[in-house]
Design a protein around this nucleic acid. Sequence first.
DNA 1: CCGCGCAACTTGACACTGACAAGATTGCCC
DNA 2: GGGCAATCTTGTCAGTGTCAAGTTGCGCGG
Lengths: 200, 200
Amino acid sequence: MSSSKASANEKGPTGRRYHHGDLRRAILTAALDAIAADGPSGLSLRDLARRAGVSHAAPAHHFKDRAGLLTAIAAEGFGLLATALREAADLKEAGVRYVRFAREHPAHFQVMFAPDLLRTGDLELTTARALAGDALREAVTAVPPEGRGADARLAGVAAWSLAHGFATLLLGHNLDGPVGDQDPEEVFRELAAMLFRHAG
Amino acid sequence: MSSSKASANEKGPTGRRYHHGDLRRAILTAALDAIAADGPSGLSLRDLARRAGVSHAAPAHHFKDRAGLLTAIAAEGFGLLATALREAADLKEAGVRYVRFAREHPAHFQVMFAPDLLRTGDLELTTARALAGDALREAVTAVPPEGRGADARLAGVAAWSLAHGFATLLLGHNLDGPVGDQDPEEVFRELAAMLFRHAG
DNA sequence: CCGCGCAACTTGACACTGACAAGATTGCCC
DNA sequence: GGGCAATCTTGTCAGTGTCAAGTTGCGCGG
C-alpha cells in the first residue's frame, strides 16, 4: 500500500517490513514460548502472528494449519530427542536424557505426545519419530542381557514407560510432593536402578 | 414461545422439552464420547449442546466454563480411579488396574492429566485427586520392604511412573509395534515383575 | 389447590479464532 | 532490467466461548 522506499532491512512506516526474514523460526519459537507458558490448547495462530509483528494470515504460508504448526514442532522435538539419546553412554543415562529433554523442552514434549493435535501421518513427523525410536532401541540392545533380561523388546517398553511416565508426571506437577526439591534426574537414576539390576 | 400443553415428559413441537431432566449427565457422557473419538482439544460446548438437543448456552448453567466441564470430568475420573485401585489385592494388581482404567476410560484419563485444560485449584478435583493418591500410597505400603526397597516414597514414584508411562504410551498408540496384539495387561504384569522383584 | 420463587433453559449479542481467497510487495535469477 | 515465484497483507466467513437478559415450569409453602 505505502510507496515508502524502505529497504529490505528497514522497517516501514507501519513498524514492520514486508519480508520478515525468518518468519518460520520466529513463529516456531513464539509458539514454543506460548505452549510452555499456557499449554498447547490455548495456542492461537493470530496471537503468534501478532507477537512476530506480521499479519494474521502470515503463519499459514509456512505451516498450512494449526495442526501443521504443531506437527512441525513435534517433528523438531523428535529430532532433538534422537540426538539427545544418542549422546548417552548407556541405557540408564539415555533415560536421564529423556527426562532432561522433557524438562528443557517442555513445549516440544507436550506436543510430541498429543496425537489429537497433530497430523499423525505427516512424513517429516513419522521419520523423525522413527529416528528417535531407533536411538532408543540402540540404547536398549547395548546393555548386556544379564542386566536387562532376555527379551530386549520388553526391556525397551519398560525403560520407555518408566522414563516417559516419570517425565510426564513431572511436567504435570504430579510429583511435586514425592520428589520435592530433589534433583529429578537423580531421582530417576534411582528408579532406573530399581528396574535394571543385575540378576541376583 | 409456543403455548403447547406438552407435559414435562413429552417433547414439545420443537422436538425438545424445556427441562431436559438430567442434562448434566447427558452433557458429560456426550463429552466423554467426543473426547474418546477426537481428543479433548477439538471439544466444542456448542456441539455438545446440539447432541443433547438443548440450546447453545445450556451447558454453561451446569458447568460454568469449558474448563469447568473438563474439571468435572477429571474429578469424576480420579474418583473412578481411586475405587479401581482400592479393589486391587497387591501393588502389581493396582498397576494392572491403572492401565485397565486408562483403556476403559480413555477420555477421563486424557483429561485428568491435561493440566492446561483444567481449573487446577478446583476443590472437587483436588479432593478426588487426593483420594486416588491415598489409594496408590496404600497399595505401595502394603507390599513388604524386601520386595520394594526401603524407601516407600521412591517405590511409589517408580510404580506410578511405570504404570502411567505405559498407559499413556499405549493410548497414544506408541506401543502398537512392541506389544502388538498381546494383552496389554499381561505385558504390564511383566514390566511390574521387572521393577519389583525380591532382592537376590 | 394456588401462586410464587428459583432453578433450568433460551435467545441474542460480542469478541475472537481458524481458514480461505485475492491482491500487494519484494527478493532473485536469467 | 524484467518477470516470476515466494512471501506477506487485507478482507471475509463460519464457528466458538462467554456474558447478559428474558422465558418456562418445577416444587414448595400457604
